[in-house]
């Protein structure tokens, strides 16, 4: 690490995850410094989503540990927001955009307590930030793919977390939405938040992110984009002779 004084937002130690005894993530060590905007890249089946899900306790690892600011995840839930893949929920569910965003406040409410005026207001503000206020009462199936993704982003924003995990937020969105989303992510970083994004489009890595992790079942490399985003690591990760010229 270049700056040893920089705090670690997320520390992953020897993490191994298996489906039916077949490891899909093998012995991952990962130290994510506070305040980076990090891409996780790797081929299909590399375990990118699995890594996020294991960090967040959605999947149980068979070995290893995860620390969020030095403590286990279940002690630090309120510091973390998660944007799952758009396809992971049923968009025909009978609910509206503002209601979905309000779900982001449920974590701070805890069990039984119901969202009130304060939570509603926070949800509307988050919708406004992602440019979706006009659609607040729209049933969620009546939104376009890009709009649905913005609603998911607003739901994470409303959590006002320190660390944001996003699983392919750019999947199936139009160019306008992609730019809107990345601008919000960059703003989060400016405020000192840590943002971790599963990302597919290698071309945009240098432009969008300042930190990158190469993953293919094992960790290939992790560090600043300008130091490690090169053909060598890409080839190691994707297994073919990859040439993405990094524009500096």
């Amino acid at each position: 690490m270049k700056n040893p004084n920089q705090k670690l937002a997320v520390a992953v130690d020897d993490l191994t995850v298996a489906y039916n005894y077949k490891p899909v993530l093998w012995d991952i060590d990962l130290a994510i410094p506070e305040g980076v905007l990090m891409a996780i890249v790797g081929p299909n089946g590399a375990g990118k989503s699995t890594l996020i899900k294991a960090i967040l306790g959605i999947l149980d690892p068979i070995a290893g540990s995860v620390q969020i600011y030095g403590k286990p995840y279940d002690k630090q839930r309120k510091l973390v927001a998660y944007v799952p893949q758009k396809g992971s929920v049923d968009w025909d569910f009978p609910t509206t955009a503002v209601d979905v965003v309000t779900m982001g406040t449920y974590g701070s409410l805890g069990w039984i307590k119901r969202p009130g005026r304060k939570e509603k207001k926070a949800a509307l503000e988050a919708l406004e930030k992602v440019g979706m206020l006009a659609f607040k009462d729209r049933q969620i199936s009546q939104l376009s793919g890009g709009q649905q993704q913005r609603v998911f982003l607003a739901r994470a924003l409303v959590q006002d977390a320190s660390i944001y995990f996003m699983d392919e937020p750019f999947q199936g969105v139009d160019a306008t939405t992609e730019i809107a989303i990345i601008n919000i992510l960059k703003e989060l970083r400016k405020k000192g938040k840590t943002v971790i994004v599963v990302h597919h489009d290698l071309q945009t890595v240098p432009e969008y992110f300042d930190w990158v992790t190469f993953l293919n079942v094992k960790k290939i490399a992790t560090g600043p984009v300008k130091d490690i985003f090169n053909d060598d690591n890409l080839t190691k990760t994707y297994g073919i002779n990859y040439k993405v010229s990094v524009q500096k």
């Binding site: 967040l56 973390v80 998660y82 799952p84 609910t95 779900m103 449920y106 974590g107 069990w111």
Partner: peptide, 22 residues
């Protein structure tokens, strides 16, 4: 009435419900 919010979130988005501690 007591668990409406919990039922809703875990039905709509199991992953988010897990990460929020429900």
């Amino acid at each position: 009435i007591a668990f409406f919010k919990e039922l809703k979130i875990s039905t709509f988005d199991k992953g988010l419900a897990t990460t929020l501690g429900f």
